[in-house]
Design a protein around this nucleic acid. Structure first.
Lengths: 209, 209
DNA sequence: GTCTATACTTCGATAGAC
DNA sequence: GTCTATCGAAGTATAGAC
């Protein structure tokens, strides 16, 4: 199978800029606002370059997804090996821009087969990594894993995080604080109160220098 | 304030058809596939008629949302006054097409101010209706509402339902069955096993006639 | 390896005929 | 109450010059 069409190199500066711009436009105006014209304009290049580097728009979306996915997988690895993995997981899961981008990809994936497959594969990878790390931890901290299986726990945390973030973004209020509190009590019960990360910056107090 | 532009009557047959078609297209191909041309074509009318009846596309979306919202509010009212309101709620919340349409509106609302306001208003109305009906019921069936406040409970049920449906649609698997089982056990613990609705059709057994 | 020029399609919305 | 005609903008994607 010969190369079906010419395509820009993987290390091109322009390529990176296009990926950055696409991510930003998805966050600001949604996946539907992503067009070769719009992305090119914001990147300061011509629309044809978008197709030169990525072929179709679906390919562009997939590249954005892959780049982000890799970053997040690495990030999650670090968090899962921290002293309070559940807390760390909760913190990332309630990251606003992360959730917003994921939602865009979810919406996109519902109607585009190739993107659905890619997104599902990443999501499964994420969840399995969580389970691998958390199973032992949950037993250790004393969670009744028979009544509350680790699988159900990670799904529940993910569901609550994305729902809270989405509804807050929508401007909703009813029940959100109570739900946040509930999760907070749960985390405190099993992992104790939040502790500053090892190596985290301390609050700086003004000192004479 | 005079009428700013001519607009079709509320009772027009064409108007209904346009709303139906829009809902279907949103489900099949997503909100981004909704255009006056596409909707008109599938409804067998000219594109100008879409603007004649609804003005802008955002207005069209809002009308679809209102129609559905009213239907669902009524449906929820009935469910909340059934003998197993939590079960009834869970059943509706895990309705596939309902969730899919809600997701489309969520994605749309993230980037369109007028739709966001409308959707948030409906969602709050839904949740408050749930709380009004469920507060007493939860106490009666013996849920520890201090540890698990009704507000957090309805958010959690909604979050789990939409997450499970979305992830199943995506083709994911890990943890979904365990989570469904967990909810099922919870429902059984407090409302008992599923009971056929009063007035529901019985399974028909072939009888000589 | 990079980009320009260009072909062709579809879009939202309106004015005005019927 | 409905439809025709139409504008200007924006859409995807490719061929081929540099």
């Amino acid at each position: 199978m010969a190369t079906p069409r010419r395509m820009g190199s993987e290390t091109s500066e322009t390529r990176f800029v296009l990926l950055d711009v696409t991510e930003r436009v998805m966050l600001e105006d949604g996946y539907a606002a992503v067009s070769s014209r719009r992305i090119a304009k914001e990147a300061g290049v011509t629309p044809a370059l978008v197709h030169y580097y990525f072929g179709t728009l679906d390919d562009l979306f997939i590249e954005v997804l892959r780049r982000r996915g890799e970053q997040q997988l690495e990030r999650q690895e670090r968090q899962l090996s921290s002293p309070q993995p559940l807390r760390a997981l909760w913190k990332t899961s309630t990251d606003e821009s992360g959730t917003a981008l994921l939602m865009e990809f979810m919406a996109l994936a519902t109607h585009r087969k190739v993107i659905r497959a890619e997104l599902a594969a990443y999501a499964e990878q994420f969840r399995k990594a969580q389970l691998d790390s958390l199973r032992d931890h949950l037993e250790e901290v004393g969670i009744d894993t028979k009544a509350f299986p680790p699988e159900a726990l990670v799904v529940t945390l993910a569901a609550l995080a994305s729902t809270i973030i989405m509804e807050e973004a929508l401007g909703m209020e009813t029940g959100l604080r109570e739900t946040r509190d509930l999760v907070e009590r749960f985390l405190t019960q099993y992992e104790g109160p939040p502790e500053p990360r090892v190596g985290a910056k301390r609050a700086r107090k003004p000192s004479p220098s």
